[in-house]
């Protein structure tokens, strides 16, 4: 999925809604760092921005976390382009398991 089209780094607070990105660096220290780690936001992790307002909400795999803009500014990410936005027409092929 990584198309490597841009290696630009932006802070998580500037990621566009629905966009996917990979965490490149966490510049937080001390308390803020502990919080980001507790949420599982660390270098290498892929995430997508579910919504930007009123606070950034980030989805990583099946985990969703919210963080304020101050914390989001301490996370540097490399955008990977738009991802399938949950609930807005993701792949919907296999429905069999819902009947069980």
């Amino acid at each position: 999925m990584v198309d490597g089209r841009q290696k630009t780094r932006i802070t998580l607070s500037r990621l566009a809604e629905g966009e996917r990105a990979q965490v490149v660096q966490v510049t937080a220290r001390e308390g803020a760092l502990a919080k980001l780690l507790a949420m599982g936001i660390l270098p290498g992790v892929e995430l997508s921005l579910v919504q930007a307002q009123p606070l950034p909400v980030v989805r990583m795999g099946s985990t969703t976390v919210a963080l304020d803009r101050e914390l989001a500014q301490l996370v540097e990410v490399a955008p990977l382009g738009p991802g399938s936005r949950p609930g807005r027409g993701g792949r919907r092929r296999c429905r069999w398991w819902r009947r069980g």
């Binding site: 919504q51 609930g87 092929r93």
Partner: peptide, 20 residues
Amino acid sequence: ERAARDDTLGERLGRWAMHP
């Protein structure tokens, strides 16, 4: 990973609850 995900009512409700 075998197949794709689908939305449940809970997920949709959960997203609405965070909507500005």
